[in-house]
């Protein structure tokens, strides 16, 4: 047993912030699954969520805003035996990095993307996020946002993600179970976590989410893509399902690259150059 733990510095989040619960959820899920900080890759985005870089230990990249997914894709491709987790916010994953999100779903890259979805930008002090309800007033949209919200669950399902789930930061117990399932899933897994921002979002509060979330029924079957898409559309009526909406078993991206029998970082150097130079004679 290693003597290192996941606990980094003491978090600097606002008291009452949903991030506290999410960190506990990730940490507990990893511990219960038997990981330690030396056996995982973490790719943090920029924002209050990404600031977890100093509070959750691991071999980590705290890279650029919006780019946590491509960074993780590179890490995973180079060393596919490492469990790889992306931690970011609604702005980084669905806004600035929205393109990467779509294409990582398509590729079924074996990464778990954990998104702090609080409908607002916290670290930059309260501008609207792409998941906010149409009409949401913020510092950058004083008369309310014109765009309709991104639907992360429907987007992920339709673009080929093989594990799509939603959690609530106020329900850490079920969040742990969802995360364990997501991290154990082979392929692209999304955990969209509804979360109040106690400082900058006075609409989507704990009370709001308690009222508008519901757990998927026990007999819900996550292997039906059409049903999952229908469920994901409930957010249009401000009904947020909690649980695993969709799951399918499919070869992950790295499994479809034949040269990745052994991890890219640890294979022998290739040195038979002559057949390649001969092509040019």
């Amino acid at each position: 047993m290693s003597d290192i733990t996941f606990d980094g510095y003491a978090p600097t989040w606002c008291p009452g912030c949903g991030d506290w619960g999410i960190r506990v959820g990730i940490k507990t899920a990893l511990e219960q699954l038997g990981y330690d900080p030396s056996t995982i890759f973490l790719s943090f985005d920029i924002g209050c969520s990404g600031n977890m870089n100093d509070f959750l230990n691991g071999y980590a990249a705290h890279g650029l805003h919006g780019r946590a997914i491509p960074t993780a894709v590179g890490m995973k491709t180079a060393h596919h035996e490492m469990k790889t987790i992306v931690i970011g916010g609604d702005g980084g994953i669905y806004g600035e990095g929205g393109n990467h999100f779509i294409h990582a779903c398509r590729g079924n890259h074996d990464i778990t993307v954990i998104v702090h979805d609080n409908m607002v930008y916290g670290l930059t002090t309260g501008q609207v996020a792409p998941t906010a309800k149409q009409g949401f007033k913020s510092k950058s949209t004083p008369r309310g946002i014109i765009e309709i919200p991104v639907n992360p669950l429907a987007l992920a399902i339709s673009q080929g993600a093989t594990f799509v789930s939603q959690g609530f930061a106020g329900d850490v117990r079920s969040l742990i179970e969802i995360m364990k399932a997501a991290i154990s899933h082979k392929g692209f897994s999304l955990v969209n976590i509804l979360q109040p921002c106690v400082t900058f979002n006075k609409i989507n509060t704990y009370q709001y989410f308690l009222k508008n979330t519901h757990k998927l029924k026990e007999d819900y079957k996550p292997n039906d893509k059409k049903m999952a898409l229908m469920k994901s559309m409930e957010v249009l009526e401000e009904k947020f399902p909690i649980g695993i909406l969709y799951k399918e078993d499919k070869a992950a991206y790295h499994e479809r690259i034949p040269q990745l029998e052994t991890p890219l970082v640890s294979r022998q150097r290739y040195a038979d150059f002559e057949p390649f130079t001969s092509e040019f004679v």
Partner: peptide
Amino acid sequence: MVVRHPEDEISVINSALGASYAGA
């Protein structure tokens, strides 16, 4: 070698930085 054609140049450089950080 692993050779990829990602969705845009931003993904290109960041994935390469990820792979490089991982040691390749």
